[in-house]
């Protein structure tokens, strides 16, 4: 399992892997925001957490279809399906590696982008924390979409369309927790805990659904 984790990590970070593209996309999306909204610093500070969240969401969706693509191309998918370790675990480890390679960097660069958007240190910290708790959920739900993409002759965009409605709760609780840390009356903990609950919930549902979909897709 550790071997699989390290292998996936290496594949994602070497040239041609998707990790760097995700970060660049995130940067580009957030950099475009001031051009759309105008350079008003107050406004940017207000929409900052939301923009970081939307950027991270889109960047995570972008890399998702690669999750099982390489395996399908070189035939490793059949090995995965036939090996003794339950497919659910394999999928879970792959999700973990995928998140470490593409989700974690997004979390790490988000403070830098927060500075661009004139966000307060506290808001930056809160956004980073919520992204850390929430982006795994996006990867775990997306694993199912990626598994569906294996069956598609041309996957890609359709996966994002299918996954997007399902990640709405993650976005809502992530953003409301990030705002709650800054705006006074709203409590931070309830939405944050719900966000973590959603992540844990999908840690169970996501890989299981992805495993079923992979089996169905490769029949």
């Amino acid at each position: 399992m550790t071997a699989l984790f390290l292998r996936d990590l290496k594949l994602a970070t070497r040239a041609g892997g998707g990790a760097l593209t995700g970060i660049l996309f995130f940067l580009a999306v957030v950099a475009v925001v001031p051009f759309g909204l105008g350079p008003d610093l107050k406004l940017l500070a207000r929409v900052g957490p939301a923009m970081l969240w939307i950027g991270a969401l889109l960047a995570s969706l972008l890399g998702l279809e690669r999750l099982f693509q390489a395996e399908r191309e070189d035939g490793a998918l059949d090995v995965m399906l036939m090996q003794e370790t339950p497919l659910v675990f394999t999928v879970f480890i792959k999700c973990l590696a995928h998140w470490t390679a593409s989700g974690l960097p997004l979390v790490l660069v988000s403070p830098l982008l927060g500075l661009f958007l004139n966000m307060e240190p506290q808001a930056i910290g809160a956004t980073m924390l919520t992204l850390l708790a929430g982006t795994p959920a996006i990867t775990l739900i997306g694993a199912m979409g990626a598994a569906v993409a294996v069956a598609l002759p041309r996957g890609g965009l359709l996966v994002s369309i299918l996954v997007l409605p399902l990640v709405v709760p993650v976005l809502i609780f992530g953003v409301s927790a990030a705002y709650a840390a800054v705006e006074d009356p709203a409590p931070f903990l309830p939405p944050f805990l719900i966000l973590i609950a959603i992540t844990l919930f999908f840690a169970v549902i996501g890989p299981a659904a992805a495993a079923v979909a992979l089996r169905a897709a490769s029949e």
């Binding site: 659904a209 979909a213 897709a217």
Partner: peptide, 14 residues
Amino acid sequence: GRAAKVSAVLILVG
């Protein structure tokens, strides 16, 4: 057949 199974997974998760 494949479409049915894959979309069944998606329907249930939804």
